[in-house]
Design a protein around this nucleic acid. Structure first.
Lengths: 187, 187
DNA sequence: TCATATGGTATCGACTCAATACCATAAAGG
DNA sequence: CCTTTATGGTATTGAGTCGATACCATATGA
């Protein structure tokens, strides 16, 4: 059988990706804009900056700056200067932005994935994850893993209370532990 | 564990796709141009037309026409009017185009896929294939399967000789049977 | 023969994206 | 301190994608 080969799989990934991105024109937003909204939704508070979005999407600063301007002028994203580092601007999703995210065109893919067998889902998750990791480390880029899986992540108390980031020296809520982080360094 | 979910998987596919496409700027060609070259390389002779490329990539005619012009002016692709239907132009890869394809930036993905376990490769192939098929049929688009898996595919002789397409009423070489086809209708 | 469908091209506008240059703030070293 | 250097972000420009529309040539069918 010729159809099953690494070459074929690689082409498949690219083709599925392209197909999804053409479907991702919805609600007047473009694919990159949706991805930016999604990122801001699941990133922790330290990671909602233009620089982090840049690293996450693999684009250049200028492009991301434009995208964020577009989202800001639609009232989906708000910028606020970081009081601790006045060069930096903290990004946040507005209520409108969160509401819009419920119409995420990625939803059709989600239902398609749901239709797969459970074992197939797990295999997809692991294989694509490994693929992503190998490409990222091959370029010295951040993995953007979950906060809880980070070297700097620590439980502050033994009683199951809030957590702590040893890098940024800040308290973390339980919710923060689930979020993805720009600074994350896998254990 | 929160990281394993259809939503997460869908986002993963999109992100890997984007990452690959940013890597696909190589040799002065753009991602779409590479995909077009790849398509022309593996499509059978009936399927090397602008219309088929359009359907395969999910773009509009105009965009594909521009892309093909770019490839033609670089001497990578040749056009020839189809004598049987003088509206249509048959496309073919030039020797230069085939040579360039050896530097395909998708190669890095191929090696990454190769590094996965065999069972993971198989799972990827099947899951992504199913995903692609569900998205395509959901939009009434062609599956572009292999010629050999088509309803119109027939063995002309019992002695293992060349094959035959019952739709286009043309002989097929063994090589053709492996190629993907615009008209393919899965059995 | 006339209408309609189909393959392809040309042109325009909105937008992405990389590249470059630039500004403001921060951090490190004398 | 004051300078250098790094970093976060913006602005501008130019190449190119992509969709939309209009258009031309050839086929197909009533």
């Amino acid at each position: 059988m010729n159809s099953y080969s690494p070459k074929h799989i690689a082409a498949l990934i690219e083709r599925v990706g392209r197909l999804l991105s053409t479907e991702a024109h919805a609600e007047g937003l473009l694919p990159v804009q949706w991805e930016t909204l999604r990122y801001l939704h699941k990133a922790n508070r330290f990671s909602r900056t233009a620089a982090a979005v840049t690293a996450y999407l693999g684009l250049t600063k200028g492009t991301v700056s434009q995208t964020l301007n577009a989202l800001e002028s639609r009232g989906l994203v708000a910028k606020r200067i970081d009081p601790k580092d006045r060069r930096s601007k903290r990004l946040s999703l507005s209520a409108k932005g969160k509401r819009l995210l419920r119409k995420d065109p990625l939803g059709v893919t989600v239902t398609a994935v749901n239709a797969l067998e459970h074992s197939a889902q797990q295999a997809l998750d692991e294989s694509l994850g490994a693929l992503l990791a190998s490409r990222l480390t091959g370029q010295g880029r951040q993995p953007f893993g979950q906060c809880r899986d980070c070297q700097y992540f620590a439980d502050q108390h033994d009683d199951g209370g809030p957590h702590y980031c040893q890098l940024l020296q800040e308290k973390l809520a339980s919710k923060d532990a689930e979020a993805i982080c720009y600074e994350q360094l896998p254990k």
